[in-house]
């Protein structure tokens, strides 16, 4: 499937790539190559105190035309997330915002309640709100009501590379929520990205799995292929599963042993 024929939209913006790239934990020099190899049309950024003296700025390393997705990392409350979002918008890079509200310091699990509150405020202010959340159906429904543009459940604790720990609950969101489900956090390798796309996720966001890989651009390319493969498989419809029997893939000729079945 050519992804040009399979666009999706977020907040009225159309995308053909279903790979959202994180930019944390690797060198600015690698960002351009990672974006290109990923074929990514959206990249996340964080907002921090600026260092004096015009040091290297990440905006100079992001290829033109890539949508910037600032996050609210560091926020522990809805109010702090709202403050960061407004600051990010003032930088003049668009209306997209990924809400991240985290109070738990050990597992870094998102606080769904504060996330819903921030979503409501920012959606009203015209932001395209992309909330990172713990995969809970009730909270996801609240995010829809609050005006979210998508829902971004974690697969596993952020930065852990542990894979799809929350599989069953992500599947529930995919089935029940009528917004793009973007699996974010914990995806550790391309096969896992492929798997959530096969499940019907609209897109995948990856950072640490690429940042901690042996070769950042090569791993970005591997994820691109996996995400495209998973999407094509989903669109195709997976083959059926037989729980308690088998089915020969080769024709049963029966010429060797009259009356017996042949194998594969």
């Amino acid at each position: 499937m050519n992804n040009q024929q399979d666009p999706w939209t977020l907040g009225g913006h159309a995308f053909t790539s279903r790979f959202i790239l994180g930019s944390g934990k690797y060198s600015l020099d690698l960002i351009k190559a990672a974006v290109e190899q990923a074929g990514a049309q959206m990249i996340t950024l964080a907002l921090r105190r600026a260092s004096q003296g015009g040091k290297d700025n990440i905006l100079d390393y992001v290829p033109p035309g890539v949508t910037l997705l600032p996050n609210t990392s560091g926020a522990r409350t809805a109010a702090e997330a709202v403050r960061i979002a407004r600051l990010a918008r003032e930088l003049g890079c668009g209306d997209f915002i990924k809400i991240e509200v985290i109070r738990d310091a050990k597992y870094l699990l998102p606080d769904n309640y504060e996330t819903v509150k921030a979503t409501e405020i920012l959606a009203r202010e015209g932001f395209v709100v992309m909330p990172y959340m713990y995969p809970d159906l009730n909270a996801a429904r609240d995010l829809v009501s609050a005006g979210a543009a998508c829902v971004m459940p974690l697969a596993a604790p952020i930065g852990s590379n542990r894979g799809i720990c929350a599989r069953d609950f992500i599947e529930i969101l995919i089935r029940e929520i009528d917004l793009p489900i973007i699996v974010d956090a914990g995806i550790g390798k391309p096969s896992q990205a492929c798997e959530v796309m096969e499940m019907g996720a609209a897109a995948v966001m990856v950072n640490t799995a690429i940042a901690t890989a042996g070769d950042v651009p090569v791993m970005a390319a591997a994820f691109k292929l996996a995400i495209e493969a998973g999407r094509s498989a989903y669109l195709s419809g997976l083959g059926r599963v037989l729980a308690n029997s088998a089915s020969a893939s080769s024709p049963l000729t029966g010429f060797l042993r009259e009356g017996e079945e042949s194998g594969e």
């Binding site: 994180g22 930019s23 944390g24 934990k25 690797y26 600015l28 960002i31 996340t44 950024l45 964080a46 907002l47 921090r48 105190r49 600026a50 700025n57 990440i58 905006l59 910037l68 600032p70 996050n71 990392s73 407004r86 600051l87 990010a88 003032e90 930088l91 890079c93 952020i158 930065g159 956090a185 966001m205 950072n207 640490t208 940042a211």
Partner: peptide
């Protein structure tokens, strides 16, 4: 938040607290 257009018109007062932020890498 101070809009950029206001930077030249904004006279700082004793005791002011200024935060200067920019984008950095993040996931």
């Amino acid at each position: 938040i101070i809009p950029k257009a206001e930077y030249r018109r904004t006279i700082l007062q004793d005791g002011d607290a200024v935060e200067v932020l920019n984008f950095v890498g993040g996931g």
